[in-house]
Design a protein around this nucleic acid. Sequence first.
DNA 1: GCAAAAGTGTTTGGGATACACCCATGC
DNA 2: GCATGGGTGTATCCCAAACACTTTTGC
Lengths: 225, 225
Amino acid sequence: MKYTSPYEAPTLTVDAVIFQLLDGTLSVALTKRLHEPFKGEWALPGGYNAKGETTREALERIVQEKAGIALSKDLSYVEQLYTFDTIARDPRGHAVSVTYMGCGRDVTPHKSMSHVVFHPLTDLPKLAYDHGEIIRYAHERLQAKLAYTNAIYGFLPPKFTLSELQSAYEAILGRSLDKRNFRKKFLSLNLIHETDEMKREGAHRPAKLYKFNSTKLEALSRSFD
Amino acid sequence: MKYTSPYEAPTLTVDAVIFQLLDGTLSVALTKRLHEPFKGEWALPGGYNAKGETTREALERIVQEKAGIALSKDLSYVEQLYTFDTIARDPRGHAVSVTYMGCGRDVTPHKSMSHVVFHPLTDLPKLAYDHGEIIRYAHERLQAKLAYTNAIYGFLPPKFTLSELQSAYEAILGRSLDKRNFRKKFLSLNLIHETDEMKREGAHRPAKLYKFNSTKLEALSRSFD
DNA sequence: GCAAAAGTGTTTGGGATACACCCATGC
DNA sequence: GCATGGGTGTATCCCAAACACTTTTGC
C-alpha cells in the first residue's frame, strides 16, 4: 500500500556539528558556501534527507559528500541533537533540519575538500542560516555530557597523559580546573588505567600514559563537575 | 523564489507525550485508533506537519483536533523531545516524527473526545508504531529534568502542600523519598514560599499551603536528587 | 643550574543520608 | 482516645574546593 500524506510536506534536511580539538581549542567543521543563498558565508555540513533513508544515514552520506569525512570511521561518537524548524530559517522555503553532533580527533577532510575548515569555537566567522544557534546548542549539550558521561574519550588519542585529559576538559568547558582535584576526582571514577608507557617530550619530567577502560559512551556513576 | 528539493521528502509528523498525575500516578494521554494501521491499539496524539507551519504549531493544532486539549492553555510546560525516524516505524511508508513532551494538571480532553484517555504509565496498553519507545524516552527525560529544573511545578496546583509535592516527585521518579530530607533539601532551593493558608481535610493535622515563586521553567542552582 | 611540566596530600565546609518521635485534627 | 497524616533535628560520611611544593627531565 502506497502512502501519501494529505499535506504537502516541508523539506527535510540534516546538519552536522562536528567537533574536534585543534591546537588545544574546540573547533567545528564548516564549509564555505559557493552558491546562494548565503554565498560566501560559512555553514555546517548538511543536505537533503531523501525518502527511504534515516536521518542518520542521510547524515553519513552528506558528511562524506560535502565534507569528505567518514562519520562512523573518523568520529568516535555521534548523537542526534535537536530539530530546528522555524519557517524563515531557510530563505528558499520551509525546511526542517534534524541536527546531529559528532566528536573526533585528527579528523581531516579529504584533500579534495579545500572549502571545509575546522574553525575555533571562540572565533567563528559569519554563519549561514541558523547555524550559529545550532552550534551554541551543540556546545551546551557537549558541556553537559562531559559532566555525566565518559564522552571526553572521543576527543583523545588512545593513549594520553592526565594533563592532556585535563586540557581537553578545560577547552570544552571554557574554564580552568585545579590539577590536584581534577586528577583525584577523575581517577576515582575508574574510567581509565595507567599503561607502562611514558610520554617524553621537551625539557621536563615525562608523563605517564593512560588508556580508557571502555571506548563506548557510558553514563558515570556519579556526576563530574 | 520557489524552492524544490531534488529529493522526494519523507512525510513529516509530530507526536505528543502529554503527562499528568491522575490519582497520584503518572499518566499519559492516548487515543484509541479507529482505523488501520494499528486499528484498535492505542497511540499518542499525533498527525501530519503541513508545509508552512512549525512542528510546534502543528502539534498545537493536532493535539487540539485529535485530543481536545489546548496545549498552551492546558499545559504549563512543553518541550521538543527527539526525532524518531526509523524507516519501518510506520507501515504506510517513511514517516519522520518530531516528538514533544508536555506536562499539566487537571487536563481533561474535550467531552467529544471519548476515545482519548489518560493511562497510568505503569500499566500501558498495547501501543501502535514505536510509541512505547517514545513514551519511555519521554519519561526518562522528565525524570532527568526533575533533577535540575523546577519542572515539577507543571504537575501541581497553584497552592499545594509539601506532602503533595513529595508525592509528585515520588510518582514521577518511581521511588519513595525520605520526608525530612526531602523537605530540608527542597526548601533550601528557595523555589517556593509559604502562604498563610492551610489545607484541612480528614482527621489529621492541617497542612501549610505553599506556592512556587516562579512558574517559568528554570534551572536549579544545584541539582536535586 | 635552570626552565618547564609532572606529580602529589591535607584541611575545611557543606550537602547527602539515615533515622524516630511529637503535633493537630476529626470522629 | 485513637487513627491519620503533618511536622521537626541530629549525627555521620563523603565529596568539593582551596591551596604549594617536590620531582624529573633537556639543555
